[in-house]
Design a protein around this nucleic acid. Structure first.
Lengths: 177, 177
DNA sequence: GCCATCTCTTGAATGGCATTCAAGGAGATC
DNA sequence: GATCTCCTTGAATGCCATTCAAGAGATGGC
């Protein structure tokens, strides 16, 4: 109701670009997806992208938002299991977007928008992990430290190839009381 | 003796380029150091770089080798202290080159040379860390897992700003028996 | 001493990139 | 029907890494 038809069209077109970017960024990588390629996939001219987004980083932020909210929705519907299994699920889920994880870290310095997104992501992730560790019985005075270690370890798991079994063992160690 | 004068000159010039790249890559970052800038700093034409190196990634590998061997020499001369302090020293030492750490991870896929260097680096680092954790009294059946967690956590510390105190606390937790 | 060969350096391209600019078209508004 | 705003685009701009072709200078063989 608050939206005019124009606003709706605009939002739809923006979403189409985000959808195309999502596929390309995840499958080909951010660096290897040029604005031209993205524009071609979205069926527009390269400079049209800039009508909807300030720059390429802002497209990435939109993709990250979409991926994050989807992943979070899945996580919240997860059957209740122990902390180690939930953690392992998170690792596997994040693996789909591991390229983006690496890209975000490499663009932290260059892009303020990415930096802000990254901080927000860490705040939320740490919050969830903190609760998991509490439930798992980690002593209160070590929760903060163990939370950070867990977050960093998960990021490490995404950046370095490893057998599924090893990942599971590491997840179990992370939530050890 | 095995070297002719020419080979020596060549090695010297190569080293000059590496020296210039070392400063630029560490202070300005790999991405923000164009071959042109590097060439200007080294006092040669841009394409001269390609006479000494296959590509920009190979320059990076040379810089990494130089930094690593220097850092390793320092580490080996470290006064004997407890594992947590040594770990904290490593974190601080690596912080000088934290940009490179991030760069290496972001270029793993794109460059086979970087990938190889990275694997070698992890093998060596894990080896050293493993010994530290053994000395610190970590149970044998958890050494491998804890080693990996420690490596990933150190990488995380480098990529995410944090107070020195928090870093020390994390280092202490990592070597906890 | 001379010529051929090899090393090294370079100016000038090539084809890419993200981003910007200026011009025009298509709808909505009046 | 005129005006105005939104949207799209072709064509630039100024980077980038890398390559090419030409030549300078030293080296080795005769």
């Amino acid at each position: 109701m608050a939206q005019t038809k124009r606003d709706q069209d605009r939002a739809e077109k923006r979403d189409e670009i985000i959808a195309a970017a999502r596929t390309l960024f995840i499958e080909a990588g951010y660096e290897d997806t040029s604005i031209s390629r993205l524009a071609a996939a979205a069926g527009v001219a390269p400079n049209t992208i800039y009508w909807y987004f300030k720059d390429k980083d802002e497209v990435l932020v939109a993709v990250l938002d979409a991926e994050f909210s989807e992943g979070m929705a899945e996580y919240l519907q997860l059957p209740v299991t122990d902390a180690a299994e939930r953690l392992y699920w998170v690792v596997q889920r994040l693996e789909r977007v591991s390229r983006l994880v690496s890209t975000v870290h490499s663009r932290l310095e260059a892009s303020e928008a990415i930096n802000l997104w990254h901080e927000r992501f860490h705040t939320i992730s740490e919050g969830i992990l903190r609760v998991s560790l509490q439930h798992a019985g980690v002593p209160a005075d070590r929760i903060e430290t163990r939370t950070k270690i867990s977050v960093f370890t998960i990021e490490g798991l995404l950046a370095h190839p490893m057998s599924e079994v090893d990942k599971q063992i590491i997840c179990r160690e992370l939530v050890r009381a």
